[in-house]
């Protein structure tokens, strides 16, 4: 991490690229951002009003009407581009935050957990409503049931072209392979 810092200097010419990693509670979002990030990941709280609107102005905000949600943020500097990774909660009550995070994002990596497949539906609804390109990575836990890919696809109602991967969110190589699959998919969609 730190040793690579010198050849990972960001210049004003670097193109910022935003990627979102979304998934239900406890699926491994914080873990995968940590595995990918070259900086100590930032965990910040976003302030939302109870009505679900994002606070863009702190003047006059009554504390009692606000709630916070954790966002993970990581960075990966590559030649010419700097990737900014956001780990975002996939609950529909965070719709407004979600809209802001995916605006301008190149794509979304949706993390799923085969122990709780249903929990991923809300996330998939959010990405599909946002019309953003995505891939699905199943984060494998020791007690995860194994399903054939076709059964998973069917359960998640995925388009045949949408990549469905298995990853270990703790392993940087596996996490990178998931991002590569996502970006290859986006390239294919753009070229087709």
């Amino acid at each position: 991490m730190a040793s690579a810092r010198s050849d990972r200097r960001i210049s004003a010419d670097h193109i910022p690229v935003k990627l979102v990693i979304a998934g239900p509670f406890g699926v491994g979002k914080t873990t995968i951002v940590g595995a990918l990030s070259e900086i100590e990941p930032l965990n910040t709280e976003e302030v939302l009003t109870q009505a679900g609107t994002l606070v863009d102005d702190l003047t006059g905000v009554n504390e009692k009407t606000t709630t916070t949600t954790a966002i993970d943020f990581g960075r990966l500097t590559l030649p010419g581009v700097v990737l900014y990774l956001f780990g975002a909660p996939g609950q529909t009550r965070f719709q407004v935050l979600w809209d802001e995070l995916v605006r301008g994002a190149l794509g979304v990596l949706v993390l799923a957990d085969t122990r709780r497949i249903d929990d991923s539906f809300a996330v998939l609804d959010l990405v599909e409503n946002a019309g953003i390109r995505y891939a699905v990575a199943v984060n494998h836990f020791p007690d995860s049931p194994q399903y054939p890919p076709e059964a998973l696809r069917q359960a998640l109602d995925l388009d045949p072209r949408t990549p469905l991967l298995v990853c270990d969110a703790r392993d940087p190589a596996s996490a990178r392979a998931s991002l590569i699959a996502l970006v290859e998919h986006i390239r294919e969609l753009v070229l087709s």
């Binding site: 590559l78 030649p79 990737l83 190149l106 590569i180 390239r187 753009v190």
Partner: peptide, 8 residues
């Protein structure tokens, strides 16, 4: 996209 892919 190519920059991201080759970099990763």
């Amino acid at each position: 996209l190519e920059l991201v892919l080759s970099g990763l």
